[in-house]
């Protein structure tokens, strides 16, 4: 790749980020993501969970970092996938719908590069969404409850910075899982010119995958579902860190990402762009 085209890709990537982060509705979405941890922190302050309450919610009063984990475990169930589905569904279909895709392709942008940049921007958005949740959770939690030692799931206490490291690992894991959903969304987005339809389709895929995963009779297919390992981030909070489920989780997310980014690339290359 020549220097000129590299610079072109960089410019294109920046404009893509501007497209996502410049929109007021996306800011509103991030703001909604940020509200949940604040609600959790305030609720725990007003009405402290009992001593026998375990899990992340029980840990909040002893360490503010748990607000971030509690918020992430709540939002990973719906709000985060909703945000990713909407943005990913919009990626290609949105431009086709507004008629800007045609212009984008007349400025000679290679279609392969277009898909690559679109996906890279989605990964940045996924990471930003997770950081929004975790970041506000940490700030709200530390302000209201302070930091200190963190009790891991195995009952071991680690220091504050160690705890911060674990939260960072959990955030990374969640971002990888959401990026896989973004890849599926990108592919769906190349199939249609209706951004809202694409977004809803991805969200439905996510929900169906979650439902199938809870049916005991279908437990054989469970490990192949895209969302099966999403909550395996608990593995990263054990002592020592376990990769029993988190390992397959990363592998599963990687495979889904590879399949659907290449499928989006194949589909987009053969797509007739008429609008």
């Amino acid at each position: 790749m020549s220097v000129a085209s590299l610079a072109g890709t960089g410019r294109f990537f920046r404009s893509e980020l501007l497209l996502i982060f410049g929109r007021r509705r996306n800011w509103l979405g991030l703001a909604i993501l940020a509200v949940v941890p604040v609600i959790i922190a305030v609720a725990a302050k007003v009405n402290a969970p009992g001593e026998d309450e375990g899990g992340f919610f029980g840990g909040i009063t002893t360490n503010g970092l748990f607000v971030a984990l509690a918020a992430l475990s709540v939002e990973l169930g719906f709000f985060l996938p909703l945000a990713i589905s909407t943005i990913a569904g919009d990626a290609v279909a949105g431009e086709a719908n507004q008629g800007t895709l045609r212009y984008l392709l007349t400025v000679p942008v290679h279609r392969t590069r277009l898909i690559a940049v679109k996906f890279a921007a989605l990964v940045v958005f996924a990471a930003t969404a997770v950081l929004t949740v975790v970041g506000t959770g940490m700030i709200a939690g530390l302000l209201l409850f302070g930091g200190g030692k963190m009790t891991l799931l195995s009952g071991t206490e680690i220091g504050f910075w160690g705890g911060l490291g674990r939260v960072a690992m959990v955030s990374g894991y969640a971002a990888v899982c959401l990026s896989a959903l973004a890849a599926i969304g990108l592919f769906v987005s190349t199939l249609t010119e209706q951004p809202i339809g694409a977004g809803i389709a991805v969200l439905i895929l996510y929900i169906v995958s979650q439902i199938l995963d809870t049916i005991p009779q279908l437990s054989a297919i469970g490990p192949y579902l895209p969302t099966h390992y999403w909550f395996a981030f608990g593995d990263l909070l054990r002592d020592p860190v376990s990769f029993n489920s988190a390992g397959p989780g990363l592998l599963s997310a990687g495979i889904y990402t590879l399949i659907f980014t290449t499928a989006a690339w194949a589909r987009f290359a053969t797509k007739d762009v008429t609008s």
């Binding site: 001593e51 026998d52 309450e53 375990g54 899990g55 992340f56 029980g58 840990g59 475990s73 799931l153 195995s154 009952g155 909550f231 395996a232 608990g234 593995d235 054990r238 376990s242 029993n244 489920s245």
Partner: peptide, 26 residues
């Protein structure tokens, strides 16, 4: 190992601990 929890049984010499992260109880 549970999804977001863990129960441990630890025997060390004459001590036996049972820890439950869900109940936050040792």
């Amino acid at each position: 190992l549970g999804t977001l929890g863990e129960s441990d049984v630890i025997r060390n010499g004459k001590d036996l601990w049972i820890w439950s992260s869900q109940q936050n109880k040792a």
